[in-house]
């Protein structure tokens, strides 16, 4: 399945009566490189609940086995061969969380196609990269809270600032906002153009309000996405209430965006990443320190259920 022009703007009319989460079997419809460093995985899922940009799915990146004697019955030859080939590599035990990078109808219009963008960094993502079209994966979702867009006025300019893999959830947000007719400005950045996880369709779409920053000068603005944003800000005369900023990327980048927004009095939401074991609020692993009104003026919240989207001014950033 190839992305056609403006396909990323196809409306997903899915409207679940209630936003329930669940465990689903998904089928791979595409798993291909989107740039030198990132792959795009498209998963078709029957009756996936309503989802929002900023939410994520948790993918089981190994072949599941949990019963007796079905394990043996289910093991198919292809899988056994793969397991033998990877005999020295420990399979991923925990699910791996991925922000939704998009969601749309398939050609038949009946099912949902969920998209994620990933980089091969370990056993889980390596397993994912070996999935072929038609293969099944077990996913849990949609998880997390999603970006808040309810405070956007019709004339508000939504500024999206994404760095590297962090561009993924903002892709979903950008297409949803554009569908609603919201004005957006999408800043994306990477060290070089060829590792920027952006689809060709968007790169070639002259109408798409995107500003690309490449540190090596291989495309658009030469410098970091932060510098590109600062450069743009310097040429605008915006009132703080006229823009809302959404950001996802390396934590140092988000921290700078957050601090700049707070200084300007601009509302800003950040998408945080934390190591988590479950994604469902059970393991308590993905703790984030946030400010509170009462002593001791901070508390831990969970990235998986309270986040991953937080208001910039509530986050107490980690040192370093």
């Amino acid at each position: 399945m190839k992305i056609t022009d403006r396909d990323y703007l196809t409306k997903d009319n899915f409207s679940a009566p209630e936003s329930k989460r669940g465990i689903f079997t998904a089928r791979v419809v595409a798993n291909e490189p989107i740039c030198k460093e990132h792959n795009r995985l498209a998963l078709k899922v029957d009756s996936f609940p309503a989802s929002k940009p900023g939410q994520f799915i948790n993918i089981l990146c190994s072949t599941s086995e949990s019963s007796y004697p079905r394990v043996i019955e289910q093991a198919d030859e292809g899988q056994l061969i793969m397991d033998k080939a990877n005999v020295l590599a420990a399979p991923a035990l925990l699910r791996r969380p991925f922000s939704l990078a998009g969601r749309r109808k398939d050609n038949q219009g009946a099912q949902s196609v969920l998209e994620i963008i990933y980089r091969i960094i370990g056993s889980g993502t390596r397993w994912l990269s070996q999935l072929g079209e038609g293969e099944q994966v077990n996913i849990i979702g949609p998880l997390g809270n999603g970006f808040r867009t309810d405070f956007l006025q019709s004339e508000t300019l939504a500024v999206l600032i994404g760095g590297g893999t962090g561009i993924a959830p903002l892709m979903y947000l950008a297409s949803e906002l554009m569908l609603k007719g919201q004005r957006i400005k999408f800043f994306v950045g990477a060290a070089s153009k060829d590792i920027l996880p952006i689809s060709k369709a968007i790169l070639e779409d002259k109408q798409f309000p995107i500003i690309i920053a490449a540190e090596d000068g291989s495309a658009g603005f030469k410098g970091t996405v932060l510098q590109a944003w600062e450069d743009w800000l310097g040429r605008q005369s915006l009132s703080p209430s006229g823009i809302v900023v959404y950001t996802c990327g390396p934590e140092v980048m988000m921290r700078e965006v957050a601090q700049r927004c707070i200084a300007m009095g601009v509302r800003c939401q950040v998408s945080l990443e934390r190591i988590m074991a479950c994604g469902m609020g059970i393991c308590q692993g993905c703790a984030v320190k946030v400010r509170t009104e009462t002593p001791p003026y901070w508390q831990y919240k969970l990235t998986c259920t309270d986040g991953p989207i937080f208001d910039a001014d509530e986050v107490i950033w980690q040192d370093g």
Binding site: A90, A92, L93, L94, I275, A277, C283, G285, C286, K289
Partner: peptide, 11 residues
């Protein structure tokens, strides 16, 4: 934080 980390077949 960090509170959890995966190891070979373990957490």
């Amino acid at each position: 934080y960090p509170r959890v980390i995966e190891t070979a077949s373990g957490l």
